[in-house]
Simulated assay, not measured.
Amino acid sequence: MSDIIATMRSWWQDISGTAIGAGFLAVLISYSGPLLIYLQAADAMAVPPAVFTSWVFAISMGAGLSCIFLSLWLRAPVALAWSIPGTVLLISIGTQLTLGEIVGAYLLVALALILLGLSGLFERLVQFLPPSVTDGMMAGILFGFGLNAARSLAADPVIFTVLVVAFVLLTVLLPRYAIICLVGIAIALTATVFDAPIGDVGLAFASPMLVQPVFSMAAVLGLAVPLFITTLSGQFLPGMAVLRTYGFEAKSRGVLVSAGIASAGAAFYGGVTVASAAITSAFFASEACNPDRSRRYIAGVAAGVFFCLGGIFAGTLVDLLVLIPTAMISILAGLALLGAIQKSLSDMMSADNVQVGLLTFLVTTSGVTLGGIGSAFWGVVVGLAAWYLTQVATRFKPS
């Protein structure tokens, strides 16, 4: 008993205003940007607000509980959120699958994360996948989404112009808070220009809805496989690298297993895979969070608490977001992903085999569906085939 009291006293002494502020800001940014992408996927699938509320509850609680547990256990500022590539994939492939099939794909990804974590083969598996292929697929998924967002210019050129001009100015004047301010502008426009009843939004608790999983080959190959690859290479790998760069010995085994368990729980309520948040991890692990490195884990705990609060009041979040016009949501989500699109394209063009990356990118971006399976899977197939053919041909090339 005395040990528990001593531990809790230690946690209390480690609390700092900067760490709590960092955790709150990270959650606010997640709800301002990535959640809008999730909402666009729900709109594309014609999902009712009640179902989307369950999704928000699931991803918020999954990310929140994971952040709290891992940060306290590892004494490291572990930041987890939901898979951004997974939400983007939903926009293209979600309309071709039932909700049960999507949940089935999420469960398989969660199981794969748990097994991979227990096996200790995380680094070896990532090395097996050529960076040019994973970078090309990531760039294709995000770039295709960006193109759809740009088409909103035709739907509402005035709103498009206002938001883009505001975004450009804010990224120069207030780069850290640009997306948050942009969402504030969007809500103001929604209330004034579109006369939406923003003032009628009140506190509303989440109403979680269980979904029966269905397993199909189309969902496995079209959603589960690309989601697993992009989540590993695009989120867990850089997330773990960031923590190690700042001197935190966070074992990938514990992080993957915990994220997998959280993902499995979230999946039954429609929540997408829980994944490492690399950019947030960098913010939490830096001196800007707390000069004392041993106390920075509090930022991860704080983010987890705020995520859980967001999950509890998911009804309020959804009631507010659904009032924003669809075209505006598309623009906001595209602008929120602009940095990720830039990074993915840069990584692809600087990979060891640019040609393979471009082939993967083109097939993924095409949006082609073959045999009921989406383009992200076929992008990986073409990319891997091109990469291994290149390796074989290089061996027989005359010196």
Score class of each variant (00 low, 15 high):
Gly117Val: 06
Ser66Ile: 05
Val27Arg: 03
Leu35Tyr: 14
Leu89Ile: 04
Ile102Arg: 00
Ile59Gln: 07
Glu101His: 09
Arg124His: 03
Thr53Gly: 13
Trp55Lys: 01
Ile114Thr: 06
Ser16Trp: 10
Gly117Lys: 06
Met45Thr: 08
Pro48Ser: 00
Val88Arg: 00
Trp55Cys: 04
Tyr31Ala: 00
Trp55Tyr: 14
Leu65Val: 13
Val47Ile: 13
Ala22Asn: 00
Gln40Cys: 10
Val27Ile: 02
Ile20Trp: 15
Ala110Phe: 11
Thr98Trp: 04
Phe24Pro: 05
Thr87Pro: 00
Ala110Ile: 06
Pro77Ser: 07
Pro49Gly: 08
Ile68Leu: 05
Ala41Trp: 15
Ile68Cys: 06
Arg75Ala: 07
Met45Trp: 11
Pro34Ile: 07
Ile20Gly: 07
Ile114Trp: 12
Thr53Leu: 02
Thr98Gly: 15
Phe57Leu: 07
Ile20Met: 14
Pro48Cys: 06
Ser60Asn: 14
Ser66Met: 10
Ser83Ala: 08
Leu89Gln: 00
Trp55Ala: 04
Phe57Gly: 06
Phe24Asp: 06
Ala76Arg: 11
Ala44Asp: 15
Leu111Ile: 15
Arg124Gly: 05
Gly17Ile: 15
Leu39Asn: 13
Arg124Ser: 15
Gly120Tyr: 11
Ala26Val: 08
Thr18Ser: 11
Phe57Ile: 03
Ser119Asn: 08
Glu101Tyr: 10
Trp55Arg: 10
Ala79Asn: 01
Arg124Gln: 12
Ala26Ile: 14
Leu90Trp: 03
Thr95Ala: 05
Ala79Cys: 04
Ala22Met: 05
Leu111Thr: 12
Gly94Glu: 03
Ala81Phe: 05
Leu116Lys: 05
Leu36Glu: 13
